[in-house]
Amino acid sequence: MITTKDLTKVYRSRGREVTALAGVDLHVREGEVYGVVGTSGAGKSTLIRCVNMLERPSSGSVTVDGLELTALAGREHRAGRDLRAARRRIGMVFQHFNLLSSRTVQENVELPLEIIGLDRTQRRRKAAELLDLVGLADKARSYPGQLSGGQKQRVGIARALAGDPKVLLSDEATSALDPETTRSVLGLLRDLNRQLGLTVLLITHEMDVIKTVCDSAALMRGGKVVEAGELTDLLARPDSLLARELFPLGDFGAGHPGHTVLEITFQGDSSAQPFVSQLARTYQIDINILGAAVETIGGRLVGRMRVELPGAHQDNVVPIGFLREQGLQVDVLDQRNGAVA
């Protein structure tokens, strides 16, 4: 649904060049919620603004729903009209709401419908449907100044849906909200994704946002995507940077010299298995639990545990094999540097 290939954006000012995007390849599948995460300056917001051509890339391509937007933007004739038509299939939700204070909630939602030439009756009907969809039917006559931050963002989402887009872009839409309101807005985005079949691409610096709502994610650093994939696949990879940041176990103990330390990852059905007690009974070994955590990531229960077994690695080959036979991912920790051996 959304594909970027070798996307580059270079800003030039007073003889200096700053590379915001350096060859970004991204693929967002139809109907999924895809998160791009990274620290400030990683290039996230530039990426999303290039996806809808608010920023023109220096090179590379952007394709949304089968249309290559970079090609449309490059045409001399009909470029403006073609690009505007393509953009109507892309909704955009902004960090700071971007609502007009002099317009009511309903009038804010009607604005894009007014721009494309719908008559007043059609605009009112559509706006009422959208406000009902985001849970703000009773706020239609209110003004933005009378709303909470979460309500303002819901208005922004309703406005973004006015053109019946297939793709919804969210640029740090929850960063100005408190945790409870953030969960509510993320829940709304997930509901819209399921009800309307929307493909959602969201930009965030918060790992909790990725955990809560995303199916897939990409980690950006220095204008590049350094890792990307489905969350379930990333969590199953011992070398995944994203998995380590989503589910850190760094504060847990590293075990004793001469013993074997394992990191065990379990997802879905395997999370209900009493594998620690089964292992202890089957092989009559003492297991030291150094740390454990269970979270819901992308709607799926995921856990990670660090345990210590007596004896060296070669003495525990059979118990490790037993755990893997239970459908668990088991990685042996190198006690010298805390990395997976």
Rank of each mutant, 00 (worst) to 15 (best):
V185S: 05
I48M: 12
V318Q: 10
S13K: 15
M1R: 04
L83I: 04
Q122M: 01
A254L: 13
V105Q: 06
Q153V: 06
L192C: 07
R306V: 12
G156E: 00
L189I: 12
L186T: 08
T174D: 02
L111G: 04
G250K: 01
V155M: 11
T212H: 05
G91W: 05
D164W: 01
I203R: 01
I157T: 08
S58K: 09
S184T: 15
D286Y: 00
M92C: 02
L201F: 12
L131I: 10
Q326N: 09
G298C: 01
H27K: 13
R183M: 09
R300E: 14
H205K: 07
D119P: 05
G187W: 07
R306D: 03
I289Q: 11
V33A: 11
R75P: 08
R89F: 00
S45K: 08
L21M: 05
P165Y: 09
A243C: 05
R125P: 02
L279D: 00
R154G: 10
P274A: 08
P112G: 03
D25V: 06
A162T: 04
K166H: 14
D171S: 13
G255N: 06
S170A: 15
V24L: 12
Q335P: 06
R14H: 11
L21E: 11
G35Q: 06
K126C: 08
T3N: 11
P179T: 02
T8I: 15
D208A: 15
V213I: 13
G31A: 12
S142V: 00
G303D: 10
L26A: 14
S170C: 15
V261A: 05
P57T: 14
D269C: 02
S101G: 14
G15V: 04
P144W: 06
P238R: 08
L242G: 00
K166Q: 15
K139M: 13
I203A: 02
K166T: 13
S175V: 05
E129N: 04
A312K: 13
A173Q: 07
A280V: 14
V225H: 06
V51R: 06
G80Q: 11
S270H: 14
S142Y: 07
G145A: 03
N52Y: 13
S216M: 01
L249I: 06
V105L: 07
V185K: 01
V105K: 05
T174K: 00
L323H: 12
H27V: 12
L241F: 00
H205F: 10
E68A: 14
I285G: 00
L130R: 01
A312C: 02
T104H: 06
N52T: 09
I48G: 12
C50K: 13
V18E: 11
I116R: 15
L201R: 10
G91Y: 08
P238N: 00
R49S: 10
H77W: 04
R89E: 07
T260N: 03
V64D: 12
G60H: 10
R244T: 09
G117N: 09
L21C: 08
A20M: 10
S175H: 12
